[in-house]
Nucleic acid binder design. Sequence first.
RNA 1: GCCGAGGUCGCUUAGCCUGGUAUAGCGCGGGCCUGGAAAGCCCGUGGGAGCAAUCCCUCGCGAGUUCAAAUCUCGCCCUCGGCGCCA
Length: 422
Amino acid sequence: MLEMKVFRESPEKIFEDLEKRNLPKDIALTVIELDNKWRKLIEEGNNLRAKRNSISKNIGELKKKGQDFSGVLKEMAILKKQLNQNETDTEIALKLRDSKRMVVPNILVNEVPVGDDENGNAEISTYGTINRKKEWLSHQDILERINGADLKRASKIAGRRFYFLTGDLARLELALVNFAVETLCEKGYSLTTPPFLMNREAYEGVVDLSDFEEVMYKIDEHDLYLIATSEHPITARFKNEIIELKEGPLKYAGISTNFRKEVGAHGISDRGIWRVHQFTKVEQVIFCKPEDSEKMHEEILNNAIHIFERLEIPFRVIDICTGDIGTVAARKYDIEAWMPSTNKWKEVVSASNCKSYQSVRLNMRYRTNEGTNFPHTLNSTAVATTRALAAILENHQTEDGDVIIPKALRKWMGNQETIKSK
RNA sequence: GCCGAGGUCGCUUAGCCUGGUAUAGCGCGGGCCUGGAAAGCCCGUGGGAGCAAUCCCUCGCGAGUUCAAAUCUCGCCCUCGGCGCCA
């Protein structure tokens, strides 16, 4: 949600942004109009309350002197009725304003490339070398050869898009997690394992409303949602609080199992463990002052780049365009790993600078010399295990169907160098 | 799950019994003082509306009683301690 001062003081910034996104100006104009209504009501209410308080004080004094005050009681009754009405109206006006405000997307950073969909995304850089000649097995074929997963029986007990990871591959998953955690801890990130369930109110502070239908699983009888990423609980953690940023940005390495409904997603590219309902992810989450957020955005991206370089996977970094970026981020970089079996780049990391969009909704602030201000929030994948595993399997396969374990992970695999096919 | 105690401004805390402007300390910011600093002293330190004077809101959340609620009543949430159950 955008700060109200932007609507009031520089609405042209919002209008320009909506134009870039091909969205109607009206959604912002409505907010401004509703805000004026609300402000008028607040002023009326304040005047009524001021009157009530002064009469009430007066009664107290009369009573102390033992004088009669029954005359003003009638006036008080009328006042009370007016105030009741005003309070109802004000509450409705504010709710309406903010429900419209929720829909207005974040203001994009100038550099964001303009485009209608993912075809408009801009490639920034590529890492590693691509070998297009060899015959490459798909990750799902390799899974079968190395006995790395049991998808069939997982679907028997839980449904499709679930999996058992087995043997060396299950071990490799833990190695990936350990590697990512160690990398981030060395850089000063504080490891955090959050609750895996969150209530609706907290969840509304960190996601789009549409995500409740399309992404998160709900536990009906408890008003709880399974988290889709540790970014959600970790960002919502300081809801309604004033945090301290004097000693620099707060940096967290989150680790959690993530649950996603993945409604509407299907296709041949989703076979195997690429798109699943449950996966483990190590995430980076940062809270910082506005002036630091662009630098922090580069930092979390570089951390992810570093991790994928050490996994020895070819990948590229792309700058997500206006039509593909969504409502929350002001700028978003993705890392796409090269998947040789299909000759395609596929998303393994997403790094977003959300500016103050989330902290406004969460009412989270930090203290400055002049008062309080909304911090910027950033998040990025460090490693999402299933996708990273798929990329490792494809890129590190050998002629005879074995998989070479990236050197960086071997210390968590008892120095094992390969995963043998059967 | 049961019993008990509690939840007050960034933190700590007084006020609650007996309803009438939310107290003090710490931390933080500014000022005085100083060659500079510490100490000391003074001011400020949650949110909203307003150009401003000013006004309003805020004591876990929500209802109720009352002219008036941090304070009284009811419901809920959470924390701590004890008991029970349990990986």
